[in-house]
Design a protein around this nucleic acid. Structure first.
Lengths: 244, 244
DNA sequence: GCACAACGAATTGTGCGCAATCCATAGCAC
DNA sequence: GTGCTATGGATTGCGCACAATTCGTTGTGC
């Protein structure tokens, strides 16, 4: 799948991430945010990232601007950038948007009912189940989000796929910011039923199930109770204290 | 320092755009692109915009990056930024995305059937008809796009509204790049029927009509025949040759 | 003890020069 | 005339220093 770009723990010159252009920096920050290595509220100082990535201020600023546009980062002029901490209202809008957009992607996939596409989705589910059995819950959840992104990509529309990718990323911020009351047990069953409907070309059933699936995810959260946001800059990227 | 230039737009030193931050610059460029004062293929040199807007390179770069993200501008590293010139495939994806997203917004508006919202939409249509009668075709078309944006905003979901805003902007690029075979006569009738369905709370009819409306717009274009892209940078923003 | 004002640290935005890179054109050989 | 090469112009990316602005803290008056 995609190359692993995580920055675990403290970094030095040896395991410094290979960042050459703005897109590299963007991908590092993106995965760091969705993987919870950068917690909501964390300040993203420009100079710190410049030294961590070894690129210029302009490159870092470009990546930060893009994340700001994508609502994963909030930016205050002349103050700085912070990892976003969506509130309840924003969470509701994200779920509502997901319902609308993913209804479209689901409809497209179900209407096509392409066996090759179904196989890819099935492969995704199998891998997720494997990871879950092995106790890798975090990776399984990550792949669970990937299921929705994969479905969007298989719909054939890059615009919608990009939208879903961003909405899923914001969802991962949300599910980690709000307490969840129910377990996430029934998810993979939903996904299973979903591709079955898609394989049968049952458009209405697939769309309806996707809708219920997202609603259930939303209802599993207690949107009135948000975890306190941490404002400490822990050295996920490794401070360049270490001499060159 | 040439001083020439038929200012196609309406900008001299007097109404020189008041640009203070990146968002101002973005809005100016955005409207210039959707209003066809900056044609597809036009090169957007950083320094030229710095002098035109009177802000720093970073501010200009920020605005340009955002437009690039929004697909209204294409950016080639170490080469520069150009006004986007979508091809047929991208056009199809934009229309497909609009169908999916605007199905969602239409459903929300029709389901709510809020009289105040209906009134706002009606006001938009009336104004469009007024402009059309007075021969202001361009402004009428502009407002016609605004109808879709207004509908998205009235749906109550900012995320979808922002998406529609961008998709409508890209649509305006597209309709001006491809020859159109049919007239655009029936549009406001569609809009009229649409809000009637919304007022009646007839969700299915409203969504279906919106879908057909967008499809008809797409079919009115000859996607195989694209106009040649112009590469001339005409001084739409008015150079600051004039001393302060 | 509390409110308010002023100071100072931190960070972004700007300007300038320089380097790297890319494209276009001119030149040359054949 | 054609194809390849090299030179030059143009433009973005980088680094440094400085200015502007903001926020947190501290000190003072009451």
């Amino acid at each position: 799948m995609q190359r692993d770009k995580r920055l675990v723990g403290v970094m030095n010159d040896r395991n410094r991430p290979q960042v050459e252009d703005a897109e590299d920096a963007y991908e590092h920050l993106f995965s760091a945010i969705v993987d919870q290595r950068l917690l909501p509220g964390t300040k993203l100082t420009e100079m710190a990232l410049v030294e961590a990535f070894g690129v210029g201020r302009r490159t870092v600023a470009t990546a930060l601007q893009r994340l700001t546009w994508e609502k994963l980062v909030v930016f205050f002029p002349k103050r700085g950038a912070f990892v976003a901490a969506p509130d309840a209202e924003e969470a509701r809008q994200v779920f509502a948007a997901r319902i609308a957009v993913e209804a479209g992607t689901t409809e497209a996939v179900a209407r096509a009912a392409d066996p090759a596409a179904i196989a890819q989705l099935q492969e995704n589910i199998d891998q997720e189940n494997r990871l879950r059995e092995q106790g890798h819950i975090r990776e399984a959840i990550h792949l669970s989000g990937g299921f929705h992104v994969l479905m969007a990509e298989l719909s054939g529309n890059r615009i919608l796929a990009e939208q879903v990718r961003l909405l899923v990323a914001r969802t991962s911020l949300i599910v980690n910011l709000f307490d969840n009351q129910a377990g996430l047990a029934g998810w993979h069953d939903h996904h299973d039923d979903l591709i079955r409907h898609c394989a049968n070309g049952d458009v209405a059933a697939a769309v309806s199930l996707m809708r219920d699936h997202i609603i259930e995810l939303q209802d599993s959260l207690i949107l009135d109770r948000r975890r306190p946001v941490a404002f400490d800059m822990l050295g996920v990227f490794g401070k360049p204290e270490f001499p060159l």
